[in-house]
Design a protein around this nucleic acid. Structure first.
Lengths: 215, 215
DNA sequence: GCGGAACCGTACCGTACGGTACGCCTGCGG
DNA sequence: CCGCAGGCGTACCGTACGGTACGGTTCCGC
């Protein structure tokens, strides 16, 4: 089962999507204790069907992660008429989306699953998560940064470096702490601060890379 | 087996430490495929002894992580006579240590193991890693930041925020990408850039929080 | 109405692995 | 020299789970 690079809406039938939803729910609830029997029971289907559709356990896992990861859609920013105000709002939107995604239970589960997977010399899940997480953000953000540089709104040498600085300023230690199960970082706790964090990160990024006056 | 908060050098006998080393080696080599039989064989001891010493598989895992995590020692910075130069060097040292640790195979393995563990509603390993990783850095760094603020070398409102910004600027997306097994981020690849990254992160931090002239 | 494909439910198999039991050896105190 | 504690190696048990097989049911095309 050579997994397709890009997943279309038609990749899975509705019934299959129901199965994947069940698998994802189990994954979120039960951690990595995802057994084929449990998925079959939850989705009211037979194990034989699971194997027929997804090949093996890894195939089901891959399909589940891929299916969910593809749901994350980045907002498209119009980079034709950028102003300082539009740029700031765009950055804030990116920061907000990034933070909101990262602290979500689904994202935490998917990242944990992929990391567990990566610990077994299998990188397929990790690649999918990377591709739909950090790399998706990067693909969206870099053109905007470069457009802003062309418009003299930002200054930097490498858009790659600029992207990574933005990422760091937004994410900080939040993701790793959530992945490690830090109890002092409850979801609601972080949620309440999202707006403040978004603004702070944007301010800091503009302070570093903004062209002088950055209001 | 109520695990002690702080591990002393005498917590484990040399023979036990040999066993833990074997366990860690297997963990690094084999990912999470750590079986009691494999540890026993590698360490040339009997499974019965393993269970006698560590209780069960989780106990062995915990002891291993704890044993290794405790080895990470932060440099102690003298905060009595801080100058701009000393501060910069201290920050660079922290950044260097943090980056070097994070990209190490042992750190990646330990984090992956703890995250896998956290996916099963067990937070003990995650807490240990957190405590010896990010939190240890924080404990060391915050007093220095505050001392620097007192010395008018830095300006910020919350030392907690300042610490997290520093963390973000240093780590960026490196750790999550390594944990996810990003192939385009080889260890040597990152290693080569450590010094540049260290300097860049420090510059950026000082640009944000330094008191005006920051050379 | 009929044949077959798809699929459900369940029983089943093989294996891997956590955990236990036991026989044997070694070293040490008396 | 004896006994015994600690520990090695191995055989063993139970279970959980990945994967397969098969009978029964539904639904669709003809």
């Amino acid at each position: 089962m050579p997994l397709p690079i890009k997943i279309s809406e038609e990749t899975f039938t509705p019934r299959q999507q129901a199965v994947l939803t069940a698998a994802l729910d189990l994954l979120v609830e039960n951690g990595d204790g995802l057994t084929m029997t449990a998925v079959a029971r939850r989705a009211s289907c037979s194990k034989e069907t699971l194997y027929k559709w997804f090949g093996d356990r890894d195939g089901l896992l891959t399909a589940t992660v891929q299916w969910q990861a593809a749901k994350v859609r980045m907002p498209h920013v119009d980079r034709s008429h950028l102003s300082a105000k539009v740029l700031r709002e765009s950055l804030e939107q990116f920061a907000r989306d990034l933070l909101t995604t990262i602290i979500g239970e689904v994202s935490i589960t998917l990242n944990r699953t992929a990391i567990t997977h990566a610990a077994q010399e299998k990188d397929s899940l990790g690649n999918i998560v990377l591709e739909n997480g950090p790399m998706a953000i990067r693909r969206r953000l870099k053109p905007i940064l470069e457009a802003a540089r062309d418009a003299r709104l930002l200054r930097f040498n490498s858009s790659e470096d600029a992207y990574r600085i933005f990422f760091g300023l937004v994410v900080r230690d939040v993701q790793i702490r959530l992945l490690l199960g830090d109890k002092s970082l409850t979801q609601s706790n972080v949620e309440a601060n999202i707006e403040a964090d978004v603004k702070a990160a944007t301010d800091q990024f503009l302070a570093l890379h903004g062209a002088k006056a950055n209001t």
